[in-house]
């Protein structure tokens, strides 16, 4: 039982990432509504972020803010061990990715809004129907 739980804990994040990736892809391919497709895009993005942040985690590490003396900065670097801190590099990449994600969400929603003003619907099949009748 203990062994199975540790095996699950070792891989659960990767399984979740794959499931979320597939949920997002399913919504983007199969769903009929444009806003649902955009929601799928957001889920897809967060799945990638989950993958990166899981890669950087270290068991027993603390958050990536280095402990230091206020009195003499710079002189204490010999005491800093990289193994004590969680890998900060994925955090940096994903922090910017989240903010760019919301900017692309804004552009996607404004495109959907423009399509609604033009065709009066957000459903993909109704839009295709109107395009065919032109």
């Amino acid at each position: 039982m203990e062994q199975m739980l540790s095996f699950i804990a070792a891989k659960a994040n990767y399984w979740t990432y794959v499931i979320l990736l597939m949920v997002g892809l399913y919504a983007m391919i199969v769903k009929n509504n444009l806003v649902k497709k955009i929601v799928g895009m957001v889920i897809f993005q967060t799945a990638i972020i989950l993958f990166y942040v899981s890669m950087g985690y270290k068991q027993g590490g603390t958050i990536p803010i280095v402990m230091h003396d206020e009195a003499h900065h710079g002189a204490t670097s010999a005491a800093i061990k990289a193994i004590d801190y969680i890998n900060p590099l994925p955090h940096v990449l994903m922090l910017t990715a989240i903010v760019v994600g919301v900017a692309t969400l804004g552009v996607a929603l404004s495109l959907a809004m423009k399509i609604y003003q033009e065709y009066g619907s957000l459903e993909e099949d109704e839009i295709n129907e109107k395009l065919r009748n032109i």
Partner: peptide, 10 residues
């Protein structure tokens, strides 16, 4: 493994 301190990314 999740939480491996010696993973290549780190």
């Amino acid at each position: 493994d999740f939480g491996d301190a010696n993973s290549p990314a780190s």
